[in-house]
């Protein structure tokens, strides 16, 4: 190819117009640049900043992840009801579109900021950092992030949370932990939701729990129903214990 204008290479010739490098294209200083960077380094750095900010303000931050329809928003409403007399609760809502979830959270009595990710399939540390600026709850608050309903992509993105909590409902398959292992491996707690429906389903709870522990032997598991309140005291107890441990540390 002609290095002057890019023409040539087809065998056509023109008197007086030479293609000196027609056989071997000129390589202007090909060289190797070593980078050795984690592709998530930028997100991880911003997550570390979020974590520092949370530590400085005494905020306890949870990242709630699940597939769509697992009952995250209902669970959040019930959690706010039970916590709000003792502690300030604020919510960051992630959805591709609409502010319906943030509206439900506000109606339940907690300040909420909605992030619409548009085409994005997950929240990242950058978006959450700005959401924290907007929310700016008082020191010692509990901040709950409701991630985009998706059991794949949010697993890779640290938001600066204290814990990831994965919510799985019994109307989904027992083998979800095996199908989406990264999310269950990244989470410290699994809430098995909608257990009030178990009498109507053929669902082997022990099989599901065994699968979850196979992917993550350290995962803690609570069985809950956001609908009728079963198990929610244990969930609130888990939040209070983890929050207390953090304040002592």
């Amino acid at each position: 190819m002609c290095t002057t204008c890019g023409c040539g290479g087809t065998g056509a010739t023109l008197d007086g117009h030479a293609h000196p490098n027609a056989q071997e294209p000129a390589r202007i200083g090909r060289r190797r640049v070593s980078l050795e960077q984690n592709l998530l380094a930028k997100n991880n750095a911003l997550a570390a900043l979020n974590r520092q900010l949370c530590a400085a303000r005494g905020w306890f931050m949870l990242n709630l992840v699940s597939s769509p329809g697992s009952g995250k928003t209902t669970l959040l409403e019930q959690t706010i009801q039970r916590l709000k007399d003792d502690v300030w609760v604020a919510v960051i809502e992630g959805d591709q579109q609409t502010s319906q979830d943030a509206d439900r959270i506000k109606a339940a009595g907690a300040p909420a900021v909605q992030i619409n990710t548009g085409k994005g399939c997950h929240l990242d540390a950058h978006l959450v950092g700005h959401a924290l600026e907007v929310l700016n709850p008082p020191d010692g608050a509990v901040v709950m992030i409701e991630n985009v309903g998706n059991l794949v992509c949010p697993a890779a993105f640290d938001l600066g949370e204290d814990h990831k909590v994965v919510i799985l409902s019994v109307t989904e398959g027992e083998d979800k932990p095996l199908k989406y292992p990264d999310m269950f491996a990244a989470s410290d707690l699994m809430l098995l939701n909608k257990v009030d429906l178990l009498p109507h389903l053929r669902y082997d709870v022990s099989r599901c729990l065994a699968f979850a522990r196979r992917v993550n032997p350290d995962i803690q598991i609570l069985q809950v129903s956001a609908q009728n309140g079963d198990g929610l005291d244990a969930w609130i107890g888990w939040i209070e214990a983890r929050r207390a441990a953090l304040q002592k540390a």
Binding site: R32, Q37, N38, L178
Partner: peptide, 28 residues
């Protein structure tokens, strides 16, 4: 979720294989 290929029954704690890195680029 693979069980230990050595003993066939144990759960395995992951110690490597989660890398997602750009190693280098060749440029001009």
């Amino acid at each position: 979720f693979d069980l230990c290929p050595a003993c066939g029954v144990g759960f395995v704690s992951v110690t490597g294989g989660t890398e997602l890195r750009i190693k280098d680029i060749d440029v001009e």
